[in-house]
Each structure stands twice: as structure tokens, then as C-alpha cells.
Design a protein around this nucleic acid. Structure first.
Lengths: 343, 343
DNA sequence: TTCAAAAGCTTAAACGTTTAAGCAACTGGG
DNA sequence: CCCAGTTGCTTAAACGTTTAAGCTTTTGAA
């Protein structure tokens, strides 16, 4: 790596001290009584030498790295990579850099990544918390580390978050099924105490009750994150063969994709033999003869709000809590062509 | 943000100089003749105070930020987000952090992101170069900035890269179609001079020639990155209605997805009425009644090799060039269930 | 007993910035 | 023509590390 040009290099060429150069290049020449002549010369030389400020040195002095850490379950999950993209754009436009890490829904890994990025002095975090990471989050609060949770939150902690109304969204999704006249509707979720999953189940139950149906535990299947493929096989089989389910609500995009694979694997037709509604969009939905109705999350808005809330915290503008809950809508018809790009 | 504990804090508690603390915590106590007793005490206090080294300060001193910049076309594209994930894992395991940026296939944006990350003193870059960014890459070489190109490269530049053999892969893909007896095979690619696209077209032509068919320009459709949806519509219609194509080779995952949408939109059956082969995997392929044969890129290997090559360069271990070309294989049958996860 | 070597520490400089404080030379009102 | 105020700069310290160099004190062989 070629030696980068520093303030000192410019100072030497112009024949002044580094302070003057610093003042001028930070547009503080006027208030520090730098003559216009010298200022001009400094700017000239800076351009000639292609000076780029050393953010590391700046950070050391200012105690600000101008970077934020983004920790999600898995950056290769479309939901999170789309989120990452909007966060990137938003952060860059505010002169912040994004460093990312994946937790794999594992609280130990989350802690590890968090520590790793903390060492790098990121100014704050945007975190999709895993199950069982309350202690870690509590520590962040204790240290007054700026952060904002996304996608999930903890009722027991008064932390900032940006989420969607999972209860309402699920209720809408399941109601959409029930309006078709089904009475035996299954649900597949992850086996998790994370509140967003709990709320999705609650929304499902609420929809049933509203339709005069008493929720039955046998229709609620939970699979674990690490082995969901095999468990999904079992769940789908049970729902179809034993419970005679007429429709299934899948609580995430990964679950829906895997569940649909299993349904097709059994040779069942959607929606004639088994109907389906899903949470989150997937590129795959555009291809079924039957459009899969699904909850479409406002990913862009979540990302933008998260960055906004975080930067407010970092800049000390936001002493109260920012608990933002957005609405997610059910999409029951294919998007017009020009909207597909962002799906 | 709570004040972080520094070497000085530990030094004050123990009653020694910061140097000693630094030596001990960097395991250089022995060679600097620190008594085992003092060393022990220092380690104790460091643990008690939960000392975390300040990487910014370290970076300033060492001129190494221990971070790498990853610049791809769009992090929300599954190909790149999967790549990002393997690069993240690989980098973290070697104590490097990953900062990312998207170029949107736009050379001006690429330069902007590159400059932005350069200011942050990243130690090197992994870049998926855009069309027309040769000058920018040349400048990196001139500055001796460590970097490695992925996915694409430039014949005119002797830069390090990790790519796949696009020529061979495309030839295999198209040959697979031709073996079924088709004679009118179309191709849809991006309108781009990037070598990987050129090689995919060359591979297609080679396959035709090998089968005794003279390539005909009318079967080669090119669409532009920014408006490919509308252009795809036109291209697919032309291939089917005017050129009477029996099969189409799509040169990327995004093109295949959009192309298939158009084909289905026209009510055409795959493969009976129009056969298809694609470049890159997509989660969507698992759902067609007919499995879409496609080129499966060794994403994990590309990412790992890229990090390896880059770090060798950063550490000055790699003076010669590292031009790595991996093989990509045609997948013409569904993957067994346990491989789907990484698809 | 002498003193070179070893042991155990400290000092100081450096990395590239920022910024408060200080200094010298000039200006102009009385 | 005196000196307060202004102008235009420099000095120095600080951020948290690393590390070469230096300074005592102790040790032990001759």
C-alpha cells in the first residue's frame, strides 16, 4: 500500500504547520483567522497531492468511528440481505460505514460477533436479536452503547426497536384463509420464544377465534432452526394426513419455501388440496400457477427507520425510547411488473 | 457510550507503566523481561475491568485496520449475499472485519464507494468490478492497494482475480440443451463488455459449432441492467414468436428468473414448448415441476479463495499474481434435500 | 571485591488528527 | 507614539496503542 498523504505532507509543501492545514480543510479557516491567500494555497496543494483524510486518526481523536455494526441471523437470507442493502444506502448517505456479522440465530455467536465489532469501535449497532440474548442486550444498555433492535424485541427490556405489527399481520393473513371457508387451518413456526414468533401465533389464534373456531394445539407445529428441513417433512405430513388440515400458515419465508417443497413432494395441489399463506415475500412465489398470498414487510422503511433511530441515539438527540411498529400488508395478488425488482 | 477502559486504566490500578501492560497483554512479557508476578497481576486486573483493546488506536500505530472492503454489484442479489456470507466467515476467522458497499453495476458509484472505504483505511478490497472501471482498478494497482477481483476481470489488466471458467460452463450448459436435439437455441445476456458475459456468449457459440450449428446473431439477445424487465419481455417474445427458438440459455440468475416469468406469462410450457438452461442457482428452481438445469457456481470456494489471496497480498506474501479460475458444474437434477439449504 | 550481565521496570516517540492556547507582528484610535 | 486589539500563524497536548531505548537494581562469576 502506497504511503498515504497526510496533513504533514501538505504542511511541508506549503510551508505552514499542520494545524493550519487542518483548519482550512475542515472549513474552519475563517474562524481561526487563516488568510485567504494561505487557505487557497493549502487547498490547491491538497488537491494536487490527492489528500484523503485518515479516518482512523480522526476516529481516535474524536472517539467516533463513523461506522455501525449490523448483526443479523444470516446475511444470505434474502430478508436480511435486502435489509442490509437499504441500511447500507442510508448509512453511506449519512457518512457512516456498515460492518456486518451473522449470528446464525445463536446467542453465543451473537455475543462473539458483538464483542468483535465492539473492539473495532463501531459507534452503534443494528441488531436482529436471537433467542436467549437478553443478557447481552441488557449489557449493551448498561454500557450505554447505542443500538436498535430490528425484526424482534424483548418485552422485558426497554430497548429501542423497529419492528412490524406481527399480531395484526398474522391475523390478517389467517383471516384471509378463513374467509374462504376453511375450518382446519395449520401453522408452522420455529420453536422459539422470540416475541415476533409468539405474536404470529397469537395473531393466528385471534383470527380463528374471530371466525368462531377454537384453536387446537395439534394444528400448531413448531420446528427448530437448525434441523427444520426434516422436522418440516414430519409437520407437513401430520397436518395433511392426520389432522386433515385444509390450509397452512407458514410463519417465515424459509419455512414457507421448505413447506411448499414438502407439499409438492407429496403431490398435493395448492390451493385445491391444501391452501397456503406465508409470512415474508420470496422470489419463488412469482412462479406458482397459484399466487401464494403472503405478508409483505416494509423492509426499506424498517432499515431506514433503524438507521435514523440509531444515529439519533449516537448523536445524543434521542433520550427517550424509540419503539417503532410498522404495518405489514397482506399481498394476495401478483405485483405489477415494475414492483418485482425489489421483491 | 460508556468510557472504555484503556491500557492506562489498568496501569494505574496495578501501579506500572502502560508499556508493561501492553507487553503482557500482547504476550510479549517474556521477551521484555516482565516478572511473572507482575504479569499475573496485570492479566487479573485486565479481566476484572473487562479490558477490550482499542482497535482504532492499534490501527493508527500499525497502519493496519484489520478490515477489508467488499464491493459487489448489489448485496441483495442472492449470488452476492451468499458470497458475502462466506467472505464474512472467512475474514472473521482470520480476525478481519468486512465493510461492504454496492456498486449497482455503475463505475461511477464503484469509484465513489471505493474512495469512501479507502478513507476508512481498509487494508484491501474484494471487488466485483463493473463495466468501464478499468481506470479505477488501474489506479488501485498504481497505489499498490491490495485487492482481488471476483466474478469478473479484465484481460487488459494483470490484476489478481478469482473467477470461474465461464466459457466451459456455458458450453456445457448449452451442449446439454443441444443433446436433446434442438437446433434453434437462443441466449439472453446483459448488454455488457464484461469478460464473463463475453465468455458466456463464446461458450454458447462454441457449443453450437461443436454440434454443427452455425451461430446466428438473431438468437443472441442483450438487455441492459437497468431496464432488463421490459427488454426481457421483448427478447422472449422475439425468440419465441419470430425466431421460433426451441430453447433459451439465460446468462444469470436474475435474467433466468425474469425470463421464466415472461415465458409463463405467455402461457408457454417448460420444457415441452420452450426449454431452458440457466446460469447460477436460484431458490425458485426447486419449485418448477420441471427442474431447471443450471450452472452451479462454487460460491463458497470463490469467497474463501478471494479472502486467502487478499490476505496474502496484504501480508506481502504474494508478490506474483494469483489468477484463480474455478470450475462450475451443470446441475441437471434436483439436489438431495440436505444440500438445498445452501442453494 | 568488582563489575558485566541480567532482570525489571520507565520514558519517550510515533501513528495522523483536532483544537485550545500562545506568540509575534501589525494596525489604528487616543 | 502608545498600547489594545486584530491578524496570522505556531506550539503543544490529546486520543490509545506499540516498541525502541534507557535507567536502576540485583545477581553471580572471576
Amino acid at each position: 500500500m502506497k504511503k498515504r498523504v497526510s496533513l504533514k505532507d501538505i504542511a511541508d509543501v506549503v510551508g505552514v504547520s499542520t494545524s493550519l492545514v487542518s483548519y482550512v480543510l475542515n472549513n474552519k479557516g475563517k474562524e481561526n483567522r487563516v488568510s485567504e491567500e494561505t487557505a487557497k494555497r493549502i487547498r490547491e496543494v491538497a488537491r494536487e497531492l490527492n489528500y484523503q483524510p485518515n479516518q482512523i486518526a480522526r476516529s481516535l481523536k474524536s472517539q467516533r468511528s463513523q461506522s455501525i455494526g449490523l448483526i443479523v441471523a444470516d446475511i444470505s437470507n434474502p430478508f436480511f440481505s435486502n435489509m442490509a442493502r437499504t441500511i447500507e444506502d442510508e448509512a453511506h448517505s449519512r457518512n457512516y460505514t456498515v460492518i456486518f456479522g451473522s449470528s446464525d440465530e445463536n446467542s453465543t455467536k451473537l455475543k462473539k460477533v458483538l464483542d468483535f465489532l465492539t473492539t473495532r469501535q463501531v459507534d452503534g449497532f443494528i441488531i436482529a436479536p436471537t433467542e436467549g440474548c437478553e443478557e447481552t442486550v441488557r449489557e449493551l444498555m448498561k454500557n450505554k452503547t447505542p443500538f436498535v433492535l430490528i425484526d424482534r424485541y424483548f418485552e422485558s427490556l426497554s430497548a429501542n426497536y423497529v419492528i412490524i405489527d406481527n399480531f395484526q399481520a398474522s391475523r390478517d393473513a389467517v383471516s384471509h384463509l378463513l374467509e374462504k371457508g376453511y375450518t382446519r387451518v395449520g401453522l408452522v413456526s420455529y420453536r422459539s420464544e422470540l416475541i415476533h414468533f409468539r405474536n404470529r401465533v397469537r395473531g393466528y389464534e385471534e383470527a380463528l377465534k374471530n371466525a368462531g373456531i377454537t384453536p387446537d394445539a395439534k394444528y400448531v407445529k413448531e420446528v427448530s432452526y437448525d434441523t427444520f428441513e426434516t422436522e418440516m417433512k414430519k409437520a407437513v405430513r401430520e397436518l395433511i394426513f392426520e389432522d386433515k388440515a385444509e390450509a397452512i400458515f407458514f410463519c417465515t419465508n424459509t419455512l414457507a419455501i421448505e413447506g411448499l417443497k414438502q407439499i409438492f413432494g407429496l403431490g398435493r395441489k395448492v390451493p385445491e388440496e391444501i391452501d397456503v399463506v406465508a409470512f415474508d415475500q420470496s422470489i419463488a412465489y412469482d412462479f406458482f400457477e397459484y399466487f401464494i398470498p403472503h405478508i409483505s414487510q416494509p423492509i426499506k422503511e424498517i432499515g431506514q427507520e433503524a438507521v435514523r433511530v440509531l444515529l439519533e441515539q449516537i448523536n445524543g438527540e434521542n433520550e427517550g425510547d424509540a419503539r417503532i411498529c410498522l404495518k405489514a400488508k397482506l399481498k394476495s395478488h401478483p405485483a405489477p411488473a415494475d414492483e418485482l425488482k425489489t421483491a
